[in-house]
Amino acid sequence: MSDFLGLHGTALILREQRLQVLASNLANADTPGFQAQDMDFNTALQAALSPAAGAGGEDPYQSAANLARYDRPSAQPSLDGNTVDTAREQAAFSQAALEYRASMTFVESKVRTMLTAITGQ
């Protein structure tokens, strides 16, 4: 069944992982010393699709997401060591939410196709 959803099922899970990282950045916009992080989607997707993913028994998506995470430097670092740019995070979060919706639309159309095949209507 996961083969049926193909790339999009994996993409949807990874897009959610990126949303979580960005939400964490926004939550810590006022925390001294917090390093803003981001997730490179291409790296995560390649890691999740590689045959070695999940070989160690851990969640393959989680480990792929962790692998693709990196510290994102701030354009205007603040004196307390916090590197979160709130406006940039909000823009990135909106974009990530849109990408999540896009992936979901693909998954949904796959689900509809399967439902049509099952019910024959």
């Binding site: 949303l19 916009a29 709130t86 909000q90 979060f93 939410a97 979901m104 949904e108 689900v111």
Partner: peptide
């Protein structure tokens, strides 16, 4: 402002979760 930003995050996440739950 920071509180509002997090409410926005919360609402976006809620919308996405509801849309995912009602998929199909």
């Amino acid at each position: 402002r920071s509180y509002q930003a997090n409410v926005e995050v919360f609402n976006s996440a809620k919308e996405l979760a509801v849309a995912t739950l009602t998929m199909g």
